[in-house]
């Protein structure tokens, strides 16, 4: 739609600007929430910075394996070429998995802030940052929907036909998820479950939205896209953790009654 804005002699890429705004908004909100919970803001800075690094590397590597292909990467390494490094891109799921792993690792290493507090403060802010980033996708012209020329269809510079604005739909659903998680985080007794709730909710949303996507940067295996396979895996694991936690809680209550 509008990939760039011109401010005097400078050309600002809107995709990068909005994705960075999403990152900054989510981080700032996390820091405010940690300060409110009387946590150590300095350690929170460290954990957020490491999470950034994990998210960028995770998003990059998943993009590399999905779009460039594992076999091509191995071939390049065997031939001593670095062609795969000149094929950059970022996938949200890779970023989410990489960021989560990096956050857990840094929380374990630095121990200046508790895992429960960080999860409670940070998890609800992720969908808000993601919602802002998706608007960047719309303006930049990536992650678009199927060919569609009806009401609300949009014209992007990267495709020669009108498409369904799936980025706006995902953005709105992410805002709803943000509100829901904020409400849940205020009442939840075991904050680590918030991560499982987010993974299950977002995986369900993404699985459905993938059917409306029309961009070509996605591998298809057995009729489902790579993101849908990751959604299934991301849903199953946390779902069983939540179920196990519920069963354990019920057993404990039953034992106390007897």
């Amino acid at each position: 739609m509008f990939p760039f804005i011109h401010i005097g002699p400078y050309v600002i890429p809107l995709y990068g600007l909005l994705l960075t705004t999403g990152f900054v908004t989510a981080s700032t909100l996390t820091l405010i929430r940690i300060r409110k919970m009387q946590g150590d803001v300095d350690y929170a800075f460290v954990v957020i910075a490491v999470t950034f690094l994990g998210a960028i590397l995770g998003g990059y590597f998943v993009y590399l394996f999905v779009s460039y292909g594992i076999s091509n990467v191995i071939e390049d390494i065997k031939a001593g070429r670095l062609d795969f490094l000149t094929n950059p891109g970022i996938v949200f799921y890779g970023g989410l998995i990489g960021g989560t792993a990096a956050a857990l690792l840094s929380l374990h290493l630095f121990q200046g802030i508790s895992l429960e507090m960080f999860v409670k403060a940070a998890v609800p802010t992720v969908p808000l940052g993601h919602a802002i980033g998706r608007i960047g996708c719309l303006l930049g012209g990536c992650c678009y929907g199927f060919p569609y020329s009806g009401r609300f269809s949009v014209c992007l510079k990267t495709v020669d036909h009108r498409v369904f604005p799936i980025q706006i739909v995902e953005s709105l659903l992410n805002i709803i998820l943000f509100v829901v998680l904020m409400v849940v985080s205020a009442r939840i007794k075991k904050p680590i479950n918030l991560l499982a709730i987010y993974f299950c909710s977002y995986a369900s949303i993404r699985f459905c939205l993938e059917f409306f996507r029309g961009d070509l940067i996605r591998g298809i295996y057995l009729g489902l896209s790579t993101s849908q396979w990751i959604s299934i895996l991301l849903f199953i694991g946390p779902f069983f953790i939540l179920l196990f936690s519920k069963v354990k809680k019920r057993n404990k209550q039953n034992n106390q009654e007897f």
Binding site: P13, Y15, L17, I90, G140
Partner: peptide, 8 residues
């Protein structure tokens, strides 16, 4: 991020 998208 912008360069990543352009290249993609």
């Amino acid at each position: 991020i912008a360069c990543s998208m352009c290249a993609g």
